[in-house]
Simulated assay, not measured.
Amino acid sequence: MSVPTLTLNDGTKIPQLGLGVWQMQDDEAPGIILSALNAGYRHIDTAAAYGNEAGVGRGIAESDVPREEVFVTSKLWNDRQGYDAALRAFDETMGKLGFDYLDLYLIHWPMPAQDRYVDSWKALIRLREEGRIRAIGVSNFLPDHLERLLDETGKAPAINQIELHPYFQQAKQREVHAKLGIATECWSPLGQGEALSDPILTEIASRYGKSAAQVILRWQVQLGLVTIPKSANHDRMRENISIFDFELTEAEMAQIKGLDSADGRIGPDPATADF
């Protein structure tokens, strides 16, 4: 079964499940990308900070899958924020990927202490207007950051990629996204593996002959989210994408909702992150 798509606020369609490539080495990325495409993935999420954009581009170029069938995301790193710097950084990203256009470009972190994310956003708006990017968005932006982008530019991000897993479900943040018409994308969707041995998740998984990871990813898809689990293992990649032949019940969705924790965050706090 093919991966369903979500329609963003600009009409762009994004596959709900993709492959994250954080911590993958550039020289190993082509083989991993080829394996993922062979497994049915059509959505790849990279970033300038990952150091593997060139490898991702090579993997796509070497595959039999046409470029237009692969949805690719990359991200602007913190030290390249600002209008002119963001434009130059995007050119560098495109050079590494070897693409004529990018499907989605995100501001990786708001970095409020720098106070350059609005100027960066204006650069992304320009690139989209020039047809070099199909959709533009942000990552790790809090509600006040999103409101400021809207207030100062009139343009809402198509998507906000945030930490989201069973132990950190970000319900209030998702409510803001829904109000503003912004899609939610999950990074670290499996909580860096911490939730995979949770008894509630393993018990649900056993009912369907699935893994806890598959239950988590299915939960996110049923919530209407986009999710990008990372794996360099071919069997695990195939497992992660095999979640469209079962459906969680309302009771099971409620059980997972009960796993949420106020202190479940794993990554940095976007309000104070400065790196």
Rank of each mutant, 00 (worst) to 15 (best):
Q169E: 11
E152D: 15
N140F: 10
A85S: 15
H108K: 04
A61R: 12
A251T: 13
I14C: 07
D144V: 11
Q169D: 06
A47W: 11
P110D: 07
R238E: 15
P229T: 12
A85L: 13
S35I: 02
R126C: 00
N140L: 01
R88I: 08
Q161L: 07
L34N: 12
E203Y: 11
L259F: 10
S120P: 03
Q25T: 09
L196Y: 06
Q81I: 02
G95M: 05
M24P: 00
L87M: 03
D27H: 11
I159G: 05
R80I: 00
G264V: 07
E152T: 11
Q16S: 14
W77A: 09
L106V: 06
D26F: 02
S211D: 05
V65L: 10
E53W: 01
D100T: 11
N52V: 03
L190S: 11
E28V: 09
G191K: 04
A89V: 02
G11F: 09
I125Q: 01
G95F: 05
G18H: 05
E239D: 13
Q23G: 01
W77R: 11
L149C: 08
I33S: 04
P66K: 07
D119Q: 15
E130Y: 04
Y50W: 09
M253R: 14
G82E: 01
G20H: 01
V226Q: 08
I243V: 10
A195H: 06
I182G: 09
M237Q: 15
G267Y: 13
N52E: 03
A262L: 10
S35R: 06
G51H: 07
L180P: 00
S74H: 10
P270F: 12
L180R: 09
A135G: 01
D119P: 12
E62Q: 14
E130Q: 13
K13D: 09
L164D: 13
G191F: 05
D45W: 06
A29M: 02
I14D: 02
G57C: 00
I228W: 10
K13P: 00
R134C: 05
N52L: 07
I136D: 10
I32V: 15
D235K: 13
E152F: 13
G82A: 04
A39M: 09
L180C: 03
I159E: 15
A135I: 06
A262Q: 15
E175F: 00
S211K: 06
S188G: 13
L225K: 13
M237A: 13
D151E: 15
G131Y: 11
K172M: 08
Q16T: 15
G82M: 04
H43D: 06
I125Y: 10
D263I: 04
P66Q: 05
D10W: 08
D27M: 04
E68K: 14
L190Y: 06
S139D: 11
F246W: 08
A251I: 03
G131V: 00
A213M: 00
R236I: 05
A86R: 08
L34Y: 03
L217V: 08
F246Q: 07
L127N: 03
P110H: 05
P66D: 04
T249W: 03
H234A: 15
